[in-house]
Design a protein around this nucleic acid. Structure first.
Lengths: 139, 139
DNA sequence: CAGAATCCGCGCGGATACTG
DNA sequence: CAGTATCCGCGCGGATTCTG
């Protein structure tokens, strides 16, 4: 069938500009980028950037999210070591979430991306409409 | 500081209006974050950050991508106004792609995110294994 | 060379109902 | 309050085939 995807440098007689060497790290980095691609992860992280919050606080702040998706999102972030989950053995249950140092180290970059997105979303929408109009007439 | 997002339902009759002040921009920004969530968009943008490239060059550089996904990815980026598509009326066809100023303005932020991802993917993998192990025993 | 078109599996995410 | 469990539609992305 198809030959094995050996993206290692193998015999690197090439001095530079071997794109394969740049692809492998990217494939691994996709695991992190997929978190950004999650619908709610970025928002949860930025909210926790303001400080520790309870489950119900996060739920109220986002409020359009379902309980299930909030749980799933928090589990994913906890699994990745980006947030802490603290359960208080009381009734009713009380669970608090906060950023780990790892999660906090992502905060600045995430905010930068979010800022860029908010700043340019109008231009992007404009570009999309322009593109979609051209599709109808030109093509 | 902790701002009072929950200012109560002083003015009623609006089903969902109060806490949206912080959520609405995020919902719109999701359009941009979804691009980052795309499997190949980030890599294509960073590649074009080095300069104009032909379709076949991008295909060769990524080489694990299918022709279809490269086309789909490039269409999406073009539609968002992030890249230019230049067709040369020759045979065989020759098409070149390059970043628009808008796309170039995203480059730094994207590189920062990519750098963070590459730098911390090992720690994240470690956290995942630790989490998965705890699931088997603890819970 | 640079695509368009078609088919399809799988996983994300929403809706809903139930529980310690 | 903070989940868990189940069902399900839809879209992403891969494989394949055909074309200007």
């Amino acid at each position: 069938m198809s030959r094995p995807v050996t993206d290692g440098q193998a015999t690197d007689s090439e001095p530079d500009s071997r794109p394969d060497t740049a692809l492998s790290p990217y494939c691994r980095a996709r695991d992190v980028l997929d978190r950004v691609g999650d619908k709610w992860s970025v928002y949860v992280i930025t909210l926790l950037g303001d400080g520790t919050k309870r489950f119900s606080e996060l739920k109220r702040d986002i409020h359009v999210i379902t309980q299930r998706m909030l749980t799933v999102t928090l589990r994913g972030l906890e699994r990745d070591g980006l947030i802490n989950r603290t359960v208080y053995p009381v009734y009713p249950a009380r669970v608090e979430y906060s950023l780990t140092p790892l999660g906090a180290s992502l905060l600045d970059t995430l905010r930068a991306l979010l800022t860029w997105s908010v700043d340019h979303v109008d231009r992007i929408d404009e570009a999309r409409q322009h593109y979609d109009d051209a599709v109808g007439t030109d093509r």
